[in-house]
Design a protein around this nucleic acid. Structure first.
Lengths: 188, 188
DNA sequence: GAACTAACCGGAGGGTGCCTCCGTTACGAT
DNA sequence: ATCGTAACGGAGGCACCCTCCGGTTAGTTC
C-alpha cells in the first residue's frame, strides 16, 4: 500500500464528497435514480469533474446511497431486538422496512435492482443485511412464531416483496404483513 | 368523433406501428425500459419522427408493451380456471405470474412503476387484471383454500410482491408461494 | 512564514440521445 | 393515372454523459 493510500483525505475533498452524497440522496428521491449527474454537481456546488473523481460512475454514487440505506435498516433490526421481546422484533422490522421503503418512494428497491449482484458492494450489503435479518429471524424462531425451515434468504425475499407491494399503498401494510406472518408461523 | 378518427389506419402506418412495438419489446427486454428510442426506431427501420408520431412519449411506448403483458396474464388466469379445479387455479396463476416476470427479467414490474397510476391506461389495465384475479380468487374462496376477507387488491399486491421477490431466484418461487398460500388459508 | 508539490478542482469539448420541424413520399379514393 | 393528404424521416438544437488537462489549493516540511 502506497503512501498516497495511507494519507487521509483532504478537508475540501471530504466536504465535497459529503455534499455530493447528500445532494444525490435528495435528487434520487425527487427524480429517481436517473437524476442528471450535472444537476447533482450543480446542487452540491462542485464541477462535474469533481463528481466524477469522487464517483467514477453513476452506479458508484447510487451504491453509496444504497449503502446508507442498508446501514439504516440493519441498525433498526438491532434496535428492535433490544426493545421487543417474544418474537415481535421480526414483525416490527418487516413493518419498519416497508415504512422506510414508502418514505423513500421505492428508491431503495430501484437501487437494489441496478446494483450488480456480483459486485463487492452488493456482497457486502447483502452480508450486512443478512446478519441483521438473521438475528431477528433467530429470535422469532426461538420464540416459536416462525417455523424452523424458513431461511434468512426467504425472510429477505418476502420482506423485499412486501415493501414493493405496499410501497404505494402503506395502508395495506398491516393486513398483508399479517398474512405473511400467518404463512411463516409453524403450521398445525 | 371526427372522420379522421373513424378512417382505418393506412397500411404503411399499421406495419410501422407493429414493427415499432415488436422491436420495443425486444429492446426493453435486452436493455431495460430506458433503451434508446433512436435505437428502437433503427431496428424497426423507421425514422425517429415516425416513432414519435405513433408513440408521442417513451411512456406511450412502454404502456403499449405493458398492455400486452397484462393481456397475457389475464388470458392465463381464465385458461387456468378452465383447466384447474378445487381452488388450484389461484396458486397456479401466482406461479405463472412469477414465471412470466422472471422470463421478462422484471420488465413488467419496471413498466408498472413508471406508468402513472392516474392515467386511463393504468386504470384500464388495472380493471382488466382485477377481473382476472377476482375470478381466480372467488374460485379459491369458494373452495375454501383462501380466507373470505382477502380482497382482490390484497391478492394482486401479494402476487406482485412475490414476482419481484423471486424474479432473480426462480428456484425459490415454490417455497415462498407455499408460505403465502399458508398465510391466505383460513386460520384455525 | 515560505516553498513545494501532490491532491484536488472544474469547465470545455466531443459524443449520444431526445424531440420538433418541415420537405418528401406513399397510400387510398376517384 | 391523378390528386389530396396522411404518413414518413432526417437534420438540427438542446441536455446530459464523461474525459482531459490546465489551474488552484491544502497540507507538509523546513
Amino acid at each position: 500500500m502506497t503512501t498516497a493510500d495511507q494519507r487521509p483525505m483532504r478537508a475540501d475533498a471530504r466536504r465535497n464528497y459529503q455534499r455530493l452524497l447528500d445532494e444525490a440522496k435528495v435528487a434520487f428521491l425527487e427524480h429517481g435514480a436517473d437524476a442528471p449527474l450535472e444537476d447533482i454537481a450543480r446542487r452540491a456546488e462542485v464541477g462535474i469533474g469533481t463528481l466524477y473523481r469522487h464517483f467514477p460512475t453513476r452506479l458508484a454514487l447510487q451504491a453509496a446511497v444504497y449503502q446508507e440505506q442498508v446501514d439504516d435498516l440493519c441498525a433498526k433490526a438491532y434496535e428492535l431486538l433490544d426493545d421487543e421481546r417474544s418474537g415481535n422484533a421480526l414483525a416490527a422490522w418487516m413493518r419498519s422496512f416497508a415504512e422506510y421503503a414508502t418514505s423513500r418512494r421505492g428508491l431503495m428497491q430501484t437501487l437494489k435492482e441496478v446494483i450488480d449482484t456480483r459486485s463487492d458492494l452488493f456482497a457486502r450489503c447483502h452480508d450486512e443485511i443478512r446478519g441483521a435479518a438473521g438475528a431477528v429471524l433467530a429470535e422469532a424462531q426461538q420464540a416459536g412464531t416462525v417455523r424452523p425451515e424458513v431461511t434468512v434468504e426467504d425472510l429477505l425475499r418476502l420482506t423485499h416483496g412486501l415493501s414493493v407491494a405496499t410501497q404505494s399503498a402503506p395502508e395495506t401494510t398491516e393486513r398483508l404483513l399479517s398474512y405473511l406472518l400467518d404463512g411463516l408461523r409453524p403450521q398445525p
